[in-house]
Design a protein around this nucleic acid. Structure first.
Lengths: 192, 192
DNA sequence: CTAGCTTCTGGACAGGTGTCCAGTTTGAGG
DNA sequence: CCTCAAACTGGACACCTGTCCAGAAGCTAG
């Protein structure tokens, strides 16, 4: 029934869910081969064994598709342990490192997802908001530092993510970078 | 002689420089009227009183055009005073606030520039690198804090910029936000 | 089996983007 | 004033993107 542009949210039938799953899966493979700039909704549809019109039923653009890939991985990420031990800095860094590494298995994929999530499209906006909320929950739950410190770290996290997405930083360096940043930002209590 | 896609860098004649200037100027006006999504190289060309083909001689895309607008404003921004007084945190925040406010006179322009600078295009990449360098110089020159703190603040700056570009933050709030962040990150010496 | 949904298909379509080129205008130098 | 190269023009072009629809195929219930 979804005419177009309707995001995969309003309850999907099993059959539809399977189609969407195949599309997101195919998108990951396609981006590994053709990188972001070579990615095409039509190409993804073909690989998923689905007509282009069908793909466009669920995803309005390649950005929408990639944002959904990221969102699904984030959704499936287990919450960080409430008390995983370590300093507040390390816990905060750990909580967000996991997010940064969500799509780090393939550099092309991580770059593509980052670029996609910055797109100026309504569907992407919706997913971005959902992702932002989840990220905020994660960092808030990981430490009880001051709001200012939390905000600073959250900003730095997004900054690092974007820098990595632009290719100015490697995704694999993000955990270390986040740890260093966290230790700088959060009051050195049991750290150092 | 520039066939296409050649960025306005290899020495322009006076006449060419004037054409480019008119184009960047027209771009600012166009984006104020039509926002980012309604911006068109052809539209900008028309407003600048120039043929589309001419515009495309200098700018390969609207993103390239907007990135150039930002770059020009940054280039013309005077360097921060070496010793403007205040704490290291305030100096750092001031140095980057000025950058954040470069295009803040019009919300549509700031959002458009941010989106454009995140684009995955060679010309934008080139400008982005130049801008990143300049930003790095500004913050490095503004304070002699530890490299880790500088890096953390720089990351937070980009994070804030992107959040503002995405509409999750107001550009006009950035100076305050950056000041708070700086005070959190940089060792509280004469601060607080 | 049949009826009546839901979902998918194939192809046509409009709109937009960047490229190209043959030809004209501009203006600086001789 | 004339020449010539640099710069601009106008329009055609190929490509891609997202939309749409009429019909086919798939599923479920009676």
């Amino acid at each position: 029934m979804p005419r177009t542009t309707e995001p995969p949210r309003a309850r999907l039938s099993d059959r539809q869910a399977e189609t969407v799953r195949r599309l997101t899966e195919a998108a990951v493979e396609e981006v590994a081969e053709h990188r972001y700039e070579g990615l095409t909704v039509r190409g993804v549809a073909k690989r998923a064994g689905v007509a282009p019109a069908t793909a466009y039923t669920y995803f309005a653009s390649k950005n929408h598709l990639l944002a959904e890939v990221f969102w699904r991985r984030l959704r499936d990420l287990p919450e960080p342990d409430p008390l995983p031990g370590g300093s507040p800095a390390d816990r905060a860094a750990g909580a967000l490192s996991a997010v940064a590494l969500l799509v780090a298995d393939d550099p092309a994929l991580s770059a593509a997802c980052t670029t996609a999530m910055l797109a100026d499209e309504p569907n992407v906006l919706r997913l971005r908001a959902r992702i932002g909320l989840r990220v905020h929950e994660r960092i808030s739950g990981a430490t009880d530092a001051s709001p200012a410190a939390l905000q600073a770290f959250e900003l730095a996290f997004y900054g690092a993510l974007v820098q990595a997405g632009m290719g100015h930083l490697s995704y694999l360096d993000l955990p270390d970078l986040l740890a260093t940043t966290a230790r700088t930002i959060f009051p050195a209590e049991e750290t150092l």
